[in-house]
Design a protein around this nucleic acid. Structure first.
Lengths: 343, 343
DNA sequence: TGTTAGCACTCTCCATCGATGAGTGCTAAC
DNA sequence: GTTAGCACTCATCGATGGAGAGTGCTAACA
């Protein structure tokens, strides 16, 4: 049996109606709502075929039909009109992205919020994978007696500042000397690459500032170590799930929310299989808790180097055309903002 | 009618049993479970009295009794054994608080998480109210061509760094000169106090670095302006509410979660009426959405200056003794950590 | 006077039952 | 290939009617 034009038309009608109403739809309703030019009986026959093909299914005998995962997949791949994001949403995204935003962490939180508000679904944003952080440059600035501000510039351009103890009062010259040695010996190294010989050299050149060096190295280890923080996943609009009729059952909500608390699983889900846009439908999800959900995700770049991903999670019955348009536009906008920001 | 010892004993039994089981309790059960030395009929009479006094109520005719808000209040004020935090929890808190934590924001997130995990309820943490931020000191450090790192030390000791454009390449001496002028003119001032005359002086002394000054002032305005971010409320364990039998009704969950999204209301709820520990029970809440909830909150200090608050939100039926002990210990620990951290 | 036993009464909870209605699959006619 | 007709299925909803828990009241008892 083959798909023909009429079958496609009927399948499209079923998917669109179910996306809108969340109710199984019957042959009579299709004939009435979408004027097919044929009677309900004919549609009934076609629907039997569509069921044989695996594109639709009945929740129970003599209910209407709903799309199966395969049906959604066919819809997304072959039937859906690729939608241009509606101008209002586009404007919102662009307006929001021009706001002054300082911290990467804030950009992520902001993106996440926007995404969930526009889709009324749950958004997932994975911060840029930083790769191995390598030491770029270090400065010391005076702070309180016995403490200094240590400013670290990593090679990828990220700047961090921390306060460390130096024990005794050191002069500006002494501090500069210490920083100079660090800058000379460690530039371009990740903390793992700093061999004992290098440490040895540092200590021997700066034998008198032992406490300062110890504290600085401690801090560097913490900073340059694969910093989980920026790789953490950010969730937005988890509560939107409560508005979806498929989650009117509390136990379903709970299992879903339990997953939300496990960062590792989420990271795996969102980590892109390939660059660009991905659509994962229902049972295609590796995570069994998401077998009733679909995920639209896309990657973004910064300087072509760091790679992160944003995604939207919703029930399998979601407005694919719209969500895809939003996610697509959002990643483009995000790439642009981040590139501008750290030019 | 007066409360006597037996009435108190019965009320305590009702509250404790209801806290544990979430089921209305009847006279027969009380007589059986807690050996009162009297028959159920006697307890029945006493319960009728307690109901007249307003301490207990029936959800419906011929169900058992449950404590009223007034009943909980009486329990908390007069009946409850003040509980010492159990050693395991105490150890957890102390172990966690010794972890290296750099950012204030992280301390807050961490506290919130810990609090919700220990209580199985929802935690609220209000970051320190920073008051007006005033300018302390500024430094410039080299970054990329055309950009520099601006390090701001506020008078309260907070250090921030930001990257700003300087247009042309400036020498280290020029940068130091600019910073010197800022440090001399603006020390101790909040951005609102910087009068036009001061700006005028800065511009006239540094007529050539116009772009740098403009950008620096822009950034200072953003940084010193009442930074909402650090005053934002942090929620933890919102999902714990789903495990409470009183929220098995989805619509209740939704109204509650809606409030969670309004930071302003939450801030108001948590902003302490007085220093130290506060218990707000059910209908005592000003927020009508929280009329079925109780809040245990407490304030914490940093250097006796900044004041924030932590709180735990749960159903009216909560284990007051335990939660109070946890919140109390937690604020003490928090005060200690923060004081040590920014000594 | 306080305590207890007994009893009728109330009200929720739960399972059962039947009517309703939406929708299907099949057959036969067009 | 399309359509009308019809029997059949199954979820939903409201009504019904025990079962069980708990109360309030009365009367007896110490």
């Amino acid at each position: 049996m083959q798909m023909d034009e009429r079958k496609r038309k009927i399948l499209r009608a079923i998917v669109q109606d179910y996306i809108a109403t969340a109710e199984p739809i019957g042959s009579r309703t299709i004939a009435r709502k979408f004027d097919m030019g044929v009677s309900s009986a004919t549609i009934r026959n076609e629907m039997a075929d569509l069921e044989d093909l695996g594109f639709i299914e009945q929740p129970y005998t003599s209910a209407g039909r709903i799309p199966s995962d395969a049906g959604y997949r066919y819809f997304v791949d072959c039937l859906m009109d690729p939608q241009v994001l509606n101008p209002e949403d586009m404007e919102i995204i662009e307006r929001e992205s021009t706001k002054r935003i300082n911290e990467l962490q804030e950009v992520i939180a902001h993106t996440s919020k926007l995404l969930s508000e526009l889709t009324n679904l749950t958004s997932l944003v994975l911060g840029p994978h930083k790769g191995k952080s390598t030491f770029g440059k270090m400065h010391f600035l005076p702070y309180q007696p016995g403490q200094v501000i240590m400013v670290i510039v990593k090679e990828n351009g990220v700047v961090e500042n921390h306060i460390i103890d130096v024990g005794e009062n050191l002069t500006a010259e002494e501090l500069q000397q210490v920083a100079g040695v660090f800058n000379q010996k460690m530039r371009g190294y990740s903390i793992g690459q700093v061999k004992r010989s290098i440490l040895h050299e540092i200590y021997s050149e700066l034998s008198r500032q032992r406490l300062l060096i110890d504290n600085a190295l401690d801090m560097l280890r913490a900073i340059l170590d694969d910093n989980e923080d920026e790789e953490r996943i950010h969730l937005g609009g988890t509560l939107n799930m409560l508005n979806q009729p498929e989650f009117k059952d509390l136990s379903k909500v709970k299992t879903l929310f339990k997953v939300f608390e496990e960062n590792e699983s989420l990271k795996k889900v969102l980590t892109p299989r390939q660059e660009g846009l991905n659509v994962t439908i229902g049972g295609e999800n590796t995570l069994k808790e998401f077998r009733d959900c679909s995920i639209i995700s896309a990657t973004y770049k910064v300087n072509g180097l760091m790679i992160g991903a944003v995604g939207v999670l919703g029930p399998t019955r979601m407005d694919y055309a719209k969500v895809i348009a939003i996610v697509d536009f959002m990643t483009r906008s995000l790439t642009e903002v981040l590139t501008k920001h750290r030019r």
